[in-house]
Amino acid sequence: MNARPKKSFGQHFLHEKRYIERIVSAVAPRDGDTVVEIGPGEGALTLPLLAAARQLTAIELDTDLIPALAVRAAAVGKLEIIQADVLKVDFRTLAKRLGAAQLRVAGNLPYYISSPILFHCVEHADAIQDMHFMLQKEVVERMAAAPGSKVYGRLSVMLQLACRVTPLFDVPPEAFRPPPKVDSSVVRLVPLPPAERHDADPERLYNIVKAAFAQRRKTLSNGLKQQMSADAIRQAGVDPGARAETLSPQEFVSLAKVAVAHAEQS
């Protein structure tokens, strides 16, 4: 099966066997796991994952890829293919329909839309056991970055507040057809248990993090002036003269909670 990759879908089909094996080994699916693959493409990951788990649900947008994939999978295990945009798939509803407490999600994500897919998955984190994704290496570096890093930003904060982020290994361009112009990396995301999750208002937190990083060179008092005063920032235990990239994810949670308290008082 050698489908013609569609540029409009950002398709780069993984074909190098040793990297396929490393990804499958990282996921380590077991018989009975409820595995969901995003963007199966030609089935390079689908078939070995299916062989291990015996059943798998794949979400594929490209209708041209589905018939051949279904034929190839028939002799391997039970494959359900959902033709849909993954951003419109409710993972909680899917888990309930599949009779699973939680899903194990994997995929070689289209790089042009990887961040929206990541945020979508995080919104459904209570229905997900873990995630293993192939992404642009630069994105994985941002996801795992620590405060003070040049690549630490909104993606770092929001993902680290929801998941444990573990970069696993890099994958070179020549492992794909056609080769992308960037290096890739595989990352593991494990949603935090309820006791470790933040208790800030999600919308307020998102808006504060977004505003703080919108102009990285600005101090918090300038970047957040539409969100909260310098005094409110101090009440959160944060220096108003600091810049966003120096704050820990938990400090953003503190800012969001104080901002909500001030809004309720006004």
Rank of each mutant, 00 (worst) to 15 (best):
P167C: 03
P167S: 01
A95G: 08
G107K: 02
F169W: 04
A75Q: 12
Q129M: 13
E141R: 14
R54A: 02
I117V: 15
P110F: 06
I66V: 14
A127W: 14
Q136E: 06
L94W: 15
E138T: 02
A68T: 11
I38P: 05
D33A: 02
M134H: 08
T63C: 02
L103W: 05
I128P: 11
G32S: 04
L49V: 03
E60A: 04
L79A: 14
V105M: 12
A70Y: 05
R142C: 07
L109S: 07
G99L: 10
G39T: 12
I128M: 12
D64N: 13
C121Y: 13
L61T: 05
A95I: 14
T46L: 04
I82Q: 13
Y111R: 02
L79E: 13
L103S: 05
P40T: 03
L56C: 12
T166W: 11
I117G: 15
P172I: 10
A68M: 11
Y111A: 03
V105K: 10
V36Q: 08
E138P: 02
L135K: 09
V122G: 07
P40L: 02
G99A: 09
A44I: 14
A73W: 10
L47R: 00
S114A: 14
D130R: 04
V86E: 09
V76F: 00
I113N: 05
V86A: 12
D85F: 00
G99S: 09
V165E: 06
